[in-house]
Amino acid sequence: MDTSRRYRLLLLPFVIATVVLVGVPAALAIGLSLTDYDALSTPNWVGFANYIQLLDDRVFGIALGNSIYFLALSVPLRLLGAFGLALWLGGERRGTGAYRAIVYLPTVIPDAATALMWLWIVNPLYGPINLLLKSLGLAQPAWLADQDSARFVFVMMACLQIGEGFVVALSGLKGIPRSYYQAAQADGAGALSLFRHVTLPLALPWIALVAVRDTIFALPWTFAVSSIMTGGDPFYTTLFLPLYARIQSVDYLKFGLGAAATTLMIVLAALALGLIGLAARRGWYADEI
């Protein structure tokens, strides 16, 4: 009897559930975006009307801008953090294990707890960050209460939750054979040149991987923390696309419009991924010269 067939049935629950819980909703999101579905009456086909309405909506424009701001700042900073820390904590010195655990720690704290803790930390009057700045005689931003600094709080939070990228960076850097460094050193390469010509090109696939992962998960991550901390305030400056989609769908029962916003969010992520792909490919070509 064919042994692989004996196991085929064990695959079924996973495949069926993944199709039903991921495939169907993803298709549904695209389908609904072309209708006026309101969760009460049967949906009518409206073509691209939802997309046109979004482009006319000033608030959607703001949410889109905020999302691009967040992606453009948080993805590169998180990459820099993950790989910089992996380079710094990569060796097998005493105590590195504990330091690595501390770097990972903020990543495992549940989003809702993180959001509550940061609400306190960036409290303009009593929060420890501003009291610290005050004791140093520095200016104290109003953080979430201020239109200019509110968005940046989320970037700061995201930059401390880099455990997963950090682990990938650690194992990626560990995979570079020692002999490469030794050979380059024998040729008289300095630390900077070692980094430029050995570490960077060999770590590039891992950097691209973490960049892709971060790009996909960046906007979904904003949803929980921004709905707890600000709900999009002040003046929509912390309204990111996932929260916009939820408000349109659940609060105003415009599921078609929400689905269109979601679909555009995917397009945005795809564009960002395309940029990363271009950058990585250029890096690979440059390496071959």
Partner: peptide, 18 residues
């Protein structure tokens, strides 16, 4: 399946659960 962002799934899945 991993590449599908969660934010794409939440609302349609909410409807399906409903």
């Amino acid at each position: 399946a991993l590449l599908v962002p969660h934010s794409m799934i939440w609302l349609p899945r909410f409807l399906m659960v409903k």
